[in-house]
Nucleic acid binder design. Structure first.
Lengths: 339, 339
DNA sequence: GAGGGCATCCAAAGCGCTTTGAAATGCCGT
DNA sequence: ACGGCATTTCAAAGCGCTTTGGATGCCCTC
């Protein structure tokens, strides 16, 4: 059942039927009713390929997925996907993942924009002065950044969490508990979220006249193994930190294991605060000693990104508004006053 | 630059240019060369929307992603995506994720097939007599199942790992070490992978005249918390098992925590074998006691699925061939002879 | 009664490709 | 010299929608 058949059946032109269905004003209410009724009764659904060719709109949002033999997709990504699905389901909004060589994402960005494969893009895990953000901006395709990129000479729409505030507050709490040697086990420090977190820690320490020693900061990919290694190195030295702030539960797993290997009891010998992105399969309250965390659901962010992208596609949103979400500090048993 | 302009420029008809570019035989070699040269020089790229409308081919593969407030996407999925990207990158093959209400995936399947949004589908985590597989078969769209579904009255193409063999071998090893009370902490037992694994355990036990007691088998969603709970329940009873086989490292985390809470030393008081899907962010060799595992990379499977899907789309593969991959048994410190 | 304004509707021209059916062209054997 | 055949090319008809640029009829005003 296509438009032609339907219009024949109704003894109306394709124009009128199309307009009636798409809510244009120049169609009488009675005709519109007749048309929508018939469309529903016959299960008419406009062919998206045809509509796309005619309008240039794809009805899909895109994500360029960096891949490569040495590139691992972050498990945080499924949480984001869950959130995206929360919104997209029920809006018939699909997501197209375009795998790209992590060394050369630009080609893929250009391709999907030139081909008009998607109406809007979502960009994640930005770096400072992020090339992808600049490119999307330049190509003029609607997009939203999940995170922030500093050092670009234009504004752009994003949603981010208050990484600096979260890590500031976590660190301040540790300082208030008497900790003087606080270490940070961070994610990849070329990513802005990590930069903001480090900034938060430094600021909180500075407020009490303390500093984050270079040897007390580690920036590594967020895996259990890396958490373990970083913690071992920190804790085995002299003047080992009495408290650690870390960027992911995955690393926290490794830190806890390191502490155990070194016969350190938590929180007596070591306080730990981790950021928690809210995984359903690994929860901070279920660590052997329940973890104090800075908590913010990536899933919720995913839903919001989808919502805003949909709004931008349909023209309900424009401009370069950035949203910064506050982060919860959830205190549990993994921290205590310094001995 | 579109086909019309290009053909004008070459003083050829659109037909000939199109044929030359698409490798049809009825075009002289010289013209073909001229055409491909000019196309490359002017950076001509056929408009996919137009091609799609004309041919009905989308050049994309699809995945219907079950979502819902109570539905969490499995972190195993990112590994699959990484693998898919390994192949798809470099083949300009995109993946479209269509979020669907987990209660009603059928509507979405019908929509994306009717709309010809994708050329082929990938179906994951099948149940027995899986409705989605039956539907895809009936709708006549190319697809590949990652896993297997029993109880369908037709054959279909799939790739799966030898879950039964893997869990059989793991269990047999435990039995050989003298364990008589072996428990299984499995994933959701409506999924076929879990059924096969249980079968493997039962068969290995039966070969030594042992049985898998109903109270020694747990089927739960694969999370740390569920692993912990299941293990607590198993280990606190009288006649507690001396060995556990489990279906995921995520659950293994919880099992190890439970053992520790109960003051059981591994492997002295408890042997543990886990299945390992090969996450880069959590490795069995880095557990506090290195885990013996049955290992099979989901990522490799993802790449293979993409490869076969591409082959099916281009007509290089047809039929209903199923692939079953062997699974490695990797022995590490988490098992020992029973005391 | 002519002209203007408004509400409805329509024919036809795209969008940029593929593919059908037919027409040139050149070459061969008879 | 001519019919038959294979090779190469083309014009035009889709694919199914949106949108432009009118038509048409009706009511109102002067």
């Amino acid at each position: 059942m296509n438009l032609k058949q339907l219009s024949l059946m109704l003894e109306l032109s394709q124009t009128t039927v199309s307009r009636a269905l798409n809510g244009y004003p120049e169609v009488s209410e009675e005709t519109r009713r007749r048309v929508t009724d018939a469309a529903k009764r016959h299960g008419y659904r406009p062919n998206p390929s045809a509509r796309r060719l005619a309008t240039g709109k794809a009805g899909m949002i895109g994500y360029v997925m960096p891949t490569g033999a040495a590139v691992d997709i972050d498990p945080h990504f499924v949480e984001f996907l869950s959130g995206l699905g929360d919104y997209a389901r029920g809006h018939e909004l699909d997501l197209v993942l375009s795998p790209a060589d992590a060394q050369d994402e630009e080609t893929t960005y250009r391709r999907i924009v030139a081909n008009k494969q998607v109406d809007a893009l979502y960009i994640s895990a930005p770096y400072n002065a992020d090339k992808r953000v600049a490119l999307a901006h330049q190509l003029g395709i609607p997009f939203i950044v999940h995170g922030r990129s500093e050092g670009l000479d234009f504004d752009y729409p994003f949603i981010d969490i208050d990484n600096e505030g979260a890590f500031h507050d976590a660190t301040r709490l540790l300082v208030q508990l008497g900790h003087k040697r606080v270490a940070l086990i961070n994610g990849d420090d070329t990513q802005t979220f990590a930069i903001f977190r480090e900034r938060g820690v430094r600021r909180a320490l500075a407020e009490s006249g303390l500093v984050l020693e270079p040897r007390n900061i580690r920036s590594v990919a967020m895996t259990e193994e890396n958490g373990y290694r970083a913690a071992r190195r920190l804790l085995e030295g002299s003047d080992a930190p009495t408290a650690i702030v870390c960027s992911s539960l995955l690393m926290a797993l490794g830190i806890v294991r390191a502490a155990r290997d070194l016969n350190l009891t938590m929180p007596r010998d070591l306080s730990l605060v981790s950021h928690d992105d809210v995984f359903h399969w690994l929860k901070p309250e279920h660590f052997s000693v329940p973890l104090t965390t800075t908590r913010s659901s990536i899933r919720a962010a995913g839903a919001r990104v989808a919502e805003r992208l949909a709004a931008r596609i349909s023209g309900l949103e424009d401009g370069a508004r950035g949203e910064v979400w506050p982060v919860d500090l959830v205190v549990r048993g993994s921290i205590s006053g310094v001995r």
